[in-house]
Design a protein around this nucleic acid. Sequence first.
DNA 1: TCTGGGGTCCTAGGACCC
DNA 2: TCTGGGGTCCTAGGACCC
Length: 421
Amino acid sequence: MIYALVDCNAFFCSCERVFRPDLWNRPIAVLSNNDGCFVSCTRDVKELGIKIGEPYFKYKQLCDEKGIVLFSSNFALYTDMSDRVMSILSRFTPDLEVYSVDEAFLDLSGFVNRSLNKYVEEIQNTVFKLTGIPVSVGVAKTKTLAKIAAGLAKREITSGGVKMLLDGDVVNKSLSKIKVEDIWGIGKSSGLKLKTLQIRSAKELIDYKNDSAIQRVLGKNGLTIKDELSGICSIKERDCSIKKSIQSSRSFAGTVSDLRLMRETISKHISTACERARAQGSVIGSAEIFFGTTPFSSEDSRQQFVHETVSFNLSTDTRKIIKYSLSVVDEWFRDGLKYKKAGITLGKLSDNKNIQLGLFEKSDSPKSEKLMSVMDKINAKDGEGTLRFASCGTADREIRSFKEFRSPKYQSSWKELPKVF
DNA sequence: TCTGGGGTCCTAGGACCC
DNA sequence: TCTGGGGTCCTAGGACCC
């Protein structure tokens, strides 16, 4: 096999730059919900020591000093740009696996006879020309090696954003420079375990003879990764078109200490998630409700973090799932606590088609299905939340989030279309 | 006095990813 | 004032059964 991993460079930042060409050479960063953390940074920002996931308030001063241009996250823009990039990539292979919002694996096995290098450059150039998004490409015999190659493509200035890891000597040389915890699928904790076996680099991992020791510390995943690094394809394609769980959650801009507000928040999360579940044709079997105070140290408040799962007969009826979920809220909510975050995860999702064929039980009445379908249609046409349940509260009590640096909704709002003079 | 062996299924939690 | 939001997969251990 020959895989190419195409990875968009600082994707969210690049999306913002497409509409702000004046920022092409400026350091920029994108912040998470409530402008809490950094979620995307251009290379020059990373070089200042700012890492993805770090809280913004720690670096506020540095950002001011260095003139870093900040953006609040604008996911409507990023998903739209992602769709465009992926659709272009699909022209280059019959087998495209979209791995995340900014990455995809292309099976290029059929192209070995062409000049692979040229083809890859063509992919890179086409994406940039048609979307304005710069991408790096790593090419190798397995997905794990392609991930490593793409990482090298980004790091090595001379690479032009493309790195081929096909020749055995080149692969070995590269692997000896890769720290074990930087391998795709091995994190901090597994990295430490491997160090107890004196394995520090990717090369040391593939040269390690005692497979059972690797399996003991990493589980069978460890051997899969070892094979992949040795050039043996062992990772199956994941089908991500149907989600197995669907989550909706947010941190509050301030804190919430009011039961009614918490009930409304949970109801809204349930409504959002159920709509997404119905949209992918799923029937829901369980809901996990969670809410909690800040996990970070704060002297003035007691801490609590609730995680409760309720299971029920398969259903798509938002009303029913809200009812179950609110009973959890009522049971666990404590007066006087300052809640910082709340959300839900829908689980035990099954395919609606199988249910209709009678393989499983479903408890909803035909009336309820009709109601949900009408609601979804109206909300799709006239906007999110046009029709909602009373338990979600009224719009004026909406819990606002901080988005100090939001960019316009260039592609999803007529009022905010970019203007060309 | 003294308490099997094997199997399946489910769930919670950990680890990892972007 | 202040620390994201979404996912996936694996494993260990409990419940249950014969």
